[in-house]
Design a protein around this nucleic acid. Structure first.
Lengths: 160, 160
DNA sequence: GCAAGAAATGCAATATTATAACATTGTAAA
DNA sequence: TTTACAATGTTATAATATTGCATTTCTTGC
């Protein structure tokens, strides 16, 4: 019984709470400063299981009257969160999503629904292994991977 | 004895020539118009096995005195080439690279060297299969994938 | 507690990548 | 050859991201 997936109905406040708690613990352990701004940005990213753009975060912060932050403010917070493995950037969408496995080294693959945008992070060993061995067969050593898959999530398939 | 890989020393004029010939054949077969501009852009993309940005292409066209094309000119040509499977866009780099398997339906994975930028296209079945089955295990059906791997190519590993 | 240094944030400007909207030109078929 | 459509030119602007520097906040050693 792990946590529910993004595809199931679930109490999303729990996702947010867990993410925040994990972030605090990880930052504490590494001596990094999870400031108020960084927490706010992290919670924005975690407001749903859909990727969120930097400028969308910016607008939301402004709308909440948290001052009128400029782009670097948000980008720096996102950089921090990425460096500490708390969010991922999806380059095919220029957007960010909360990491489901913070604190655990992993390389992930993202399943992005083209209908509802719900995005799930996989850390599928068979994929990593296939990539590593096929790359190795060409003499290539992997440093980091970006695997972003677009398709239909189970809910949107059912809703035909 | 297939074509040499990008990692081997090879007569690159041959790569360009083959790419152009394949492009002409494919466009002819589908009734698409491979105009002079589109050919020029395709050759720019094929000038090396390294991804090339749209604005770099733009500068090169301008430098050659082919008029002073504006961004839409290049982006439209790139869109055409993508639609006909002649180039791929690497979203993690905002750059384009010639397709190694034009005319053959395939989903590819890209091996991008972080030292020399040389990029190789794989169409590794084990990777596709692992992705398909791991996604299916989560109820997800793949429509298209973007797999961009950064690491060290054999030449750069040897050159330590 | 307090000063010094480092880290974080604010802020203005600008770089980079990409697209929208509309005019013009070129091509091919009736 | 006229008509229709595809391609390209042109201008402006949108969307995403970064640089450089000023200011504030936090932490640490005294």
């Amino acid at each position: 019984m792990g946590a529910p997936t993004a595809y199931e109905k679930h109490d999303h406040r729990r996702c947010i709470k867990d993410a925040l708690q994990a972030a605090r613990q990880i930052c504490k352990a590494s001596g990094a400063r999870l400031t108020s701004l960084r927490e706010q940005v992290l919670m924005k990213v975690w407001q749903s299981h859909k990727p969120l753009g930097a400028y969308a975060i910016l607008e939301q912060l402004a709308a909440e009257g948290q001052g009128h932050p400029a782009p670097p403010t948000v980008y720096r917070a996102l950089d921090f969160l990425q460096e500490h493995g708390l969010v991922h950037r999806l380059s095919s969408l220029n957007a960010y999503i909360g990491c489901d496995l913070p604190g655990e080294p992993h390389d992930s693959q993202f399943l992005i629904c083209r209908h509802c945008q719900t995005t799930v992070e996989m850390a599928a060993e068979p994929v990593s292994q296939a990539l590593t061995s096929c790359a190795a067969a060409r003499g290539f050593t992997i440093h980091q991977s970006s695997v972003e898959i677009v398709g239909s999530c189970p809910n949107c398939q059912a809703a035909v």
